[in-house]
């Protein structure tokens, strides 16, 4: 057995199993979804047969019908736009909350820094549903927060408001769940800044405000882009948060995808929506990568 042959056998044995597994349980399912978006809905939900044998021979049952339906009904474009807005506001809010925290952690001494990072990560690893559920308690109609707020509003002569099952509740949930995704890349960037730069800026007469806006912030842009992408992409496609906190007002595109697959069972149309979401998510990821690269040069 030659050495080269042995080396390629070794490579095949190590790479093969995970590659085959991921092709089978990620690659092929993704291709099936692409194909399903071109198929026709079945009579009782699901998919119509891929080919049919009629008097004129066998023909494939593929069409752009579901895509046509998506582009002709502005409701779905509106839902995508709404989800985009939710994700955008979430990303901005996360940035505003995460920046001071990331800065604080990056400027802390070694031991304390590790602890502070761990404290950001820990809630991220607790169950996603529990973190959403916690806000159902906090924003619920009988909660301390809601009652206090409404008592204050009553003092001002304003009618009581509801917090749960509103777009506001969806935003709070989205920000809460995705915040660590913004803190970590920001921190990873800020940690690398050379403090001498700030000293130099100060020696040259820059005040605290101008040191931040003209030194720290421009240098941190790659972290800002990375964090924005990491928050934006999962927030765009989420369905559990609007499902639990949004009520009928706060529906996002993820809810409609879920509905098409599990309730209406129009799989081709569900696949079309998923395809548009995939393309949107990939485009945004590409855009973030592009911006990140440009700022690094």
């Amino acid at each position: 057995m030659s050495a080269a042959w042995r080396a390629s056998l070794q490579r095949f044995l190590i790479t093969g199993p995970p590659l085959v597994y991921l092709l089978l349980f990620f690659g092929i399912p993704t291709l099936i979804m692409v194909l399903a978006s071109l198929r026709l809905p079945g009579e009782f939900g699901g998919l119509a047969p891929l080919w049919e044998t009629g008097p004129s021979g066998t023909e494939l049952n593929l069409s752009l019908e579901s895509y046509g339906r998506f582009f002709s009904d502005s409701l779905y474009a509106w839902l995508f736009f709404k989800s985009f807005l939710y994700a955008l506001v979430t990303a901005v809010a996360c940035l505003l909350l995460a920046y001071p925290l990331a800065l604080l952690i990056a400027r802390s001494p070694g031991k304390r820094r590790d602890l502070l990072v761990l404290l950001v990560i820990l809630p991220f690893w607790s169950n996603f549903l529990i973190r959403v559920y916690a806000w159902m308690i906090i924003l619920g109609p009988e909660s301390v927060l809601t009652r206090t707020l409404n008592a204050l509003l009553a003092g001002l002569g304003i009618a009581p408001v509801e917090l749960l099952f509103t777009p506001f509740a969806v935003l709070v949930g989205l920000v809460y769940v995705h915040l660590p995704f913004m803190v970590l890349p920001l921190f990873a960037n800020l940690e690398k800044h050379d403090p001498a730069l700030l000293d130099a800026a100060q020696d040259l007469g820059a005040g605290a405000w101008s040191r931040f806006w003209r030194v720290t912030f421009p240098l941190s842009l790659p972290g800002v882009y990375a964090g924005t992408a990491l928050v934006f992409i999962p927030a765009f496609g989420i369905f559990a948060i609007p499902d639990l906190l949004g009520g009928t007002q706060g529906i996002m595109i993820g809810n409609v995808i879920k509905q098409q697959f599990l309730d209406t069972r129009d799989w081709p149309f569900g696949s079309v929506l998923s395809m548009v979401l995939t393309v949107g998510a990939l485009a945004l990821a590409g855009l973030a990568a592009l911006f990140g690269r440009r700022t690094r040069v």
Binding site: T30, M33, G254, I257, K258, L282
Partner: peptide, 16 residues
């Protein structure tokens, strides 16, 4: 699978 929204992995596996 880590980069795209989870729901996409979920529905494509359902179809599969």
């Amino acid at each position: 699978p880590i980069a795209i929204p989870e729901i996409l992995t979920g529905v494509s596996l359902l179809l599969f």
